[in-house]
């Protein structure tokens, strides 16, 4: 193998690894705050990417219907759950968050979807559609199970994954899509070419990592999320709503997922079920970090990206087999480390 190929593979691995790191962060965050092992993380990648791709050819993505359905369902469920404690203020808040918001997005998209629309506006519109789905999903599927065991939550997450992939097929169809790059800048460093997309991936990953750091370190909300992760009972006792923290965690999860999706669109053809495999690679990284450590997750994500790049060069057809089999020894190592727990329900 010559040096240039080596560099190519490293660059490729680093680019993919950056995406896996973002997804790994989301998984760690969701698990720490809600104890949910969020298998459907990758579905936000597919939803985000495909929604962006449709917007960039001027089509109205049918995910806006899904957003409406999610919003209304979560609103109805929430109103029913809090029926004894309902005040006018909380009623208005629910209607605004569950019905008015998705409706507004719905009409905004219908107004703004044009083939010549700027990529950056499409980027924002995609976020407006996909990000609210996270908290809605939490309220519909997971909030009623908030006190269930990690295992029950995991099974529920698998159920949600199954449904979301199915919905993806309904809304996007079986064909794969690609989207244009966000920028056309490119240059070469030595012999190694850097495209605008590669740069965008690095820049966005770094910016988001920094942004998340500031959010968790400097804001009261961010600290409240960390507190929920550190000690749920303690968090409740100071008045932090665990359900509220869960919704924020899910919003960040759908946000990071959608951005990852938009970033990979120009380099990969994304199908309705592609997200799952991408999400799982973020997962491998998060498991390395025991679903708890952001720095270990980041390093592991880069490692997964590079291993994958080399695997696809040397044994391309066994790439997935190798990457996923990697999880098993890591799980074993983590199990032996973790204190033995009684597997009660």
């Amino acid at each position: 193998m010559d040096g240039l190929i080596l560099l190519f593979l490293l660059q490729d691995g680093l680019t993919n690894g950056a995406i896996y790191a973002l997804l790994g962060f989301a998984l760690v965050l969701v698990f720490a705050v809600t104890r949910i092992i969020f298998i459907p993380q990758g579905e936000f990648v597919a939803y985000g990417g495909l929604t962006f791709a449709l917007l960039s050819i001027g089509k109205i993505p049918s995910t806006i219907w899904l957003l409406l359905v999610f919003g209304i369902a979560s609103c109805v469920i929430q109103l029913w759950r809090t029926r004894y404690l309902l005040t006018l203020r909380s009623f208005i808040r629910e209607i605004a968050g569950g019905i008015a918001l998705p409706l507004a997005v719905f009409f905004l998209i219908r107004m703004l979807a044009r083939p010549d629309q700027s990529a950056w506006l499409n980027f924002l519109l995609t976020l407006a559609i996909v990000v609210p789905m996270g908290p809605y999903l939490y309220r519909i599927a997971f909030q009623p199970l908030a006190n269930a065991s990690v295992l029950t939550l995991l099974i529920a997450a698998v159920g949600v994954h199954l449904s979301m992939v199915g919905l993806g097929l309904v809304f996007f169809g079986p064909e794969g899509l690609r989207a244009p790059t966000l920028t056309d800048i490119s240059f070469t460093l030595g012999k190694l070419p850097f495209t605008g997309q590669t740069i965008a991936v690095y820049a966005v990953t770094l910016a988001l990592t920094g942004g998340l750091y500031l959010f968790f370190d400097r804001t009261l909300r961010g600290k409240a999320l960390r507190a929920t992760a550190a000690n749920r009972l303690g968090a409740r006792l100071v008045g932090i709503s665990v359900a509220g923290s869960g919704q924020i965690a899910f919003a960040l999860s759908s946000f990071l997922g959608a951005i990852s999706g938009i970033l990979i669109m120009p380099v990969t053809t994304v199908y309705y079920d592609t997200g799952f495999l991408i999400g799982l690679k973020g997962f491998v990284a998060a498991i390395f970090g025991a679903l708890a450590s952001y720095p270990i997750t980041a390093v592991a994500a880069i490692a997964v990206g590079i291993i994958e790049a080399f695997a696809s060069f040397h044994a391309s057809s066994y790439k997935e087999v190798i990457v996923f089999m990697l999880i098993v020894p890591v799980l074993l190592w983590r199990s032996l480390y973790a204190p033995q727990i009684e597997e009660d329900e």
Binding site: L220, K223, A224, R226, A227, A230, N231, G234, A235, V238, I240
Partner: peptide
């Protein structure tokens, strides 16, 4: 307590 956070952050929360 929030063991992984500072005394100040615990109080803030």
């Amino acid at each position: 307590l929030f063991a992984s956070m500072t005394v100040e952050d615990n109080l803030l929360l």
